[in-house]
């Protein structure tokens, strides 16, 4: 079981070479196949995830959640997707049409790119990038631009307010986000995600870096625009924020991208802090799925408990609390590493 997917990949390459393809072309085709698989997984995953969030939030509120279509209402999301696909596509007449239309596509492309570097199991990633973590952070911050495009292109005050909020928020939270990961990088000595996983052979980084874990969790919630930091959307205040003017499938793309981001960030959290695909008995790719879903459930739990924070508090929380704390964590980690080396433990 463990090497199910890697063996499949090797078999595929071998088969292609026997067909007479040069190894380079075989690699390219394999990459394409990997991409297609990832996109399929993402889509399927999102369908389950949306259903799961509705179900979980319902349980928190003593409701039943979707229960009409299929067992436990599991096909509800599919029905919703069909509904969204058949809806009228409205583009406001005053909108900047090009920006308005490209924003959702841009958002989802950026979100899917995140999956390139995440190790889905032992030796299972699209590209084994040696700056994987850096790639992930920089790709993640690109989604700000998509939101700004959506807000600006819509020519709507609510959208613009949402977009401006999201830019302010994401830029502020990028810093503690990166800083909190630095501690991990310092210990493992690598930006390659597979190396980071390997470094957690004995002990998970969540135990070595609890402060970093917490700051990363908070900053990631803000990066994901999830409650209690869902400023850009802010249903009850900005009536949907940057997404106000979007309908049908365009809106659904934003929705999909948000969940795609959620899975990616949760997977990264599982990789960096929770030992990645490492775990006993079960195959590695199952472990990462379990851990990712565990993190996602915590995200759900937080969102469905807390009220939304106020914009100015949000900013001051980032600059006055999270940034100093994560900086302090770097200092502490450095001191710890120095101490270890001095004692000759590592």
């Amino acid at each position: 079981m463990e090497h199910l997917f890697t063996n499949l990949a090797t078999a595929l390459t071998g088969w292609m070479i026997t067909l007479g393809l040069s190894p380079v072309w075989a690699d390219v085709i394999l990459l394409l196949v990997k991409w297609i698989i990832i996109i399929t997984i993402i889509t399927l995953n999102i369908i389950i995830l949306i259903w799961l969030e509705r179900k979980v939030s319902a349980f928190f509120q003593e409701r039943l959640g979707p229960n009409r279509l299929g067992p436990f209402g599991i096909f509800q999301t599919i029905a919703d997707a069909i509904k969204l696909l058949t809806k009228e596509d409205i583009v406001p007449s005053a909108a900047d049409k090009l920006i308005f239309k490209t924003a959702p596509m841009f958002f989802i492309v950026v979100a899917v790119m995140l999956y390139t570097v995440i190790p889905m199991g032992q030796g299972m990633e699209v590209i084994n990038l040696n700056i994987g973590l850096l790639f992930f952070i920089s790709m993640g911050s690109l989604s700000t631009i998509a939101l700004l495009m959506a807000g600006w292109g819509s020519d709507n005050k609510w959208s613009l307010m949402g977009a401006v909020r999201s830019v302010a928020q994401m830029i502020s939270y990028e810093i503690p986000l990166a800083f909190s990961l630095l501690g991990v990088v310092m210990i493992s000595g690598s930006l390659n995600l597979q190396d980071i996983v390997a470094a957690q052979d004995n002990i998970w980084f969540v135990i070595l870096q609890p402060i970093a874990f917490l700051t990363y969790f908070i900053a990631a919630t803000a990066e994901l625009n999830r409650g209690p930091f869902d400023m850009p959307e802010a249903e009850q205040e900005l009536t949907g924020g940057a997404y106000t003017e979007y309908t049908g499938m365009r809106w659904a793309l934003f929705f999909l991208a948000e969940y795609t981001n959620l899975v990616a960030v949760s997977a990264l959290m599982a990789t960096v802090f929770l030992g990645g695909w490492q775990g006993p008995w079960l195959p590695s790719w199952l472990w990462i799925i379990i851990k990712t879903y565990g993190v996602i459930l915590v995200f759900f739990w937080v969102k469905w408990t807390f009220p939304r924070i106020r914009m100015d508090h949000l900013m001051s929380f980032s600059w006055k609390v999270l940034v100093p704390v994560s900086l302090g964590n770097i200092l502490l980690t450095g001191a710890g590493i120095y101490f270890c080396q001095w004692m000759g433990w590592c």
Binding site: F60, E62, T305
Partner: peptide
């Protein structure tokens, strides 16, 4: 909220 998660639904 966690406590309510495990309580019976009232829908």
């Amino acid at each position: 909220t966690l406590k309510h998660f495990f309580q019976k639904e009232i829908t």
